[in-house]
Design a protein around this nucleic acid. Structure first.
Length: 493
RNA sequence: GGCCCCAUCGUCUAGGGGACCAGGACGCGGCCCUCUCAAGGCCGAAACGGGGGUUCGAAUCCCCCUGGGGCCA
């Protein structure tokens, strides 16, 4: 068998979608597993919606994911160009060839005429297919239409097909389409632009794609394309139709389900390796009962035939859990990357300047060291550690419980104890707190919880003593005194 | 409406005739650990959509129904 060549062909009309990235990943995995080539092709024929910015964004998101391509618009390759707008002459050439052979014919029907046909079919409650009234126009009739100023579209002649179309899908098995449901479909619009089912076939063939792995929303396009391959005299590639990822309501994953762009997950501080690991667990699962896999393992074990046919529902909870697993691992192996992750998040939140100096970075590193273990996503740095970067704001419920007149004297005494504590580090801080409580005849917890609220504003977060050390003496003492006053009943801004 | 696809715990899945009174994971509940939270440990609730076949035996094979989805209109 020839070397495996797969492709992913996004339209640059938006950011890389989760579903697209997942599909691309399976293409990538399959190619890698077989030592083949993964190609990126840009389907930008819809010029009104395609933009260069989106194209660049898609490249960027793929790079972030770590999915490289061997051929594509930016890196070139032997069967380029890899942008459909740059391949117009190719489509024109094959359209002409089809027309010359009579395998395709010009259709002069107007949109209104076709609408009328469709409505009539609906009224008579039969499925609509193109009537074929332009199939056998004489040269004179065509000339008359042309003279009347009508610009023809080009239709593929398929209605004389007799036998069923049988597609042996690598995932779905044998799928049979009866020919009577097909009609002569348009392959080139009257303005000369090629349609999906035409351009796609031309590209896949010319790019020598061996396996078309795509979402099953394209399954119903397959017979049309199948006919196209035949008309062009080409051997079709192998097809594999992946299920469609659904949202919690079991409808195709879309904006209204929340974040659907890879970029949005990136911005929230998800890790690419976690996302890929998560992708591998949708509609497929490696052999062992683990959930966490290195990329190389996935490449080694991936088998297209094992991919499930049922549509998975995007499970954000599981993704987040998996991301937490990777975050914790990173804390042990490369805490710097967690710091990098948090820098972007904090900047977007306005808690860190655009260009943090080495001092700010060092501080952030200490913060991460203290909160890192509980970060499931980068964004959690806000939930768990915002107080490291801005003034505390008491959570009303937490203040009501812990900043009471009873805790005021303890907070004040603790502030005094910390004011001249030397050295100021977690061990001595803890001893100071316990000393204050012992002298007051109170339990440690009677001060620990109020102190936490005083310093962080919340009831949950990193260890109190570590956090206090990172916060530093000045801010800690200041916040404790303010909380003591607040607790005593004074209104403190 | 037409065509096509799909169907195991709430979710992701293992299972491809006896190894299954169905395994793992997320989530959920309880307990432990503990300065809180997270993590971790232990325990628990939780599924083969229904009906017919085939077979000595079906989650696993076939048919029908039901339900869900995708595409086209």
């Amino acid at each position: 068998m020839a070397a495996v060549r797969t492709r992913f062909a996004p339209s640059p009309t938006g950011y890389l979608h989760i579903g697209g990235a997942w599909t691309a990943f399976f293409n990538w995995l399959f190619a890698r597993h077989h030592g083949g080539v993964f190609i990126l092709r840009i389907e930008d024929t819809d010029r009104s919606r395609s933009t260069q910015a989106y194209e660049a964004a898609i490249f960027e998101d793929f790079r972030w994911l770590g999915l490289g391509w061997q051929e594509g618009p930016d890196v070139g390759g032997p069967v380029g160009p890899y942008r459909q707008t740059e391949r117009q002459d190719l489509y024109a050439r094959f359209a002409r060839e089809l027309a010359d052979r009579g395998a395709a014919y010009p259709c002069y029907c107007t949109a209104d005429e076709l609408d009328a046909e469709r409505r009539r079919a609906e009224r008579e409650r039969r499925p609509h297919r193109y009537s074929g009234r332009c199939r056998d126009l004489t040269a004179a009739q065509r000339a008359a239409f042309e003279a009347a100023g009508r610009r023809p579209s080009l239709r593929l002649r398929v209605t004389d097909l007799a036998e069923p179309i049988v597609v042996d899908d690598l995932i779905r098995g044998r799928v049979v389409f009866e020919p009577e449901h097909l009609d002569d479909y348009i392959i080139v619009r009257s303005d000369g632009t090629p349609l999906y089912n035409f351009a796609n076939v031309v590209d896949d063939h010319l790019m020598d794609i061996t396996h078309v792995i795509r979402a099953s929303e394209h399954l119903s396009n397959t017979p049309k394309q199948w006919v196209m391959y035949r008309a062009l005299g080409w051997a079709p590639p192998a097809f594999a139709h992946l299920p469609v990822i659904l949202g919690a309501d079991r409808k195709k994953l879309s904006k209204r389900h929340g974040d659907t762009a890879v970029r949005e997950y990136r911005e929230q501080g998800y890790l690419p390796e976690a996302l890929l690991n998560f992708f591998a667990l949708m509609a497929w699962h490696p052999e062992s009962e683990r959930e966490v896999y290195a990329l190389e393992e996935l490449v080694r074990e991936f088998r297209l035939e094992e991919v499930g046919r049922a549509s998975p529902i995007f499970d954000l909870d599981k993704l987040t859990w998996l991301n937490g697993v990777y975050m914790r691992r990173l804390m042990g192996q490369a805490p710097g990357r967690v710091v990098d992750l948090c820098v972007g998040i904090l900047q977007r939140e306005g808690l860190l300047p655009a260009d943090p100096g080495p001092e700010a970075r060092a501080y952030l590193a200490r913060v991460v060291e203290v909160v890192g273990e509980r970060l499931k996503t980068g964004r959690d740095i806000i939930a768990y550690g915002d107080f490291f970067f801005r003034d505390v704001e008491y959570d009303p419920a937490a203040a009501a419980v812990h900043l009471t007149p009873a805790s005021a004297p303890l907070l004040a005494a603790y502030a005094d104890a910390l004011a001249d504590l030397e050295p100021f580090e977690r061990g001595t801080i803890e001893a100071a707190l316990r000393g204050v409580c012992a002298r007051a005849g109170a339990e440690a917890r009677a001060l620990i919880h109020p102190a936490r609220v005083a310093l962080t504003g919340k009831t949950a977060g990193p260890g109190l003593f570590e956090l206090t050390e990172v916060l530093g003496r000045e801010r800690a003492v200041d916040r404790l005194r303010r909380a003591a006053a607040f607790a005593a009943g004074a209104v403190v801004p």
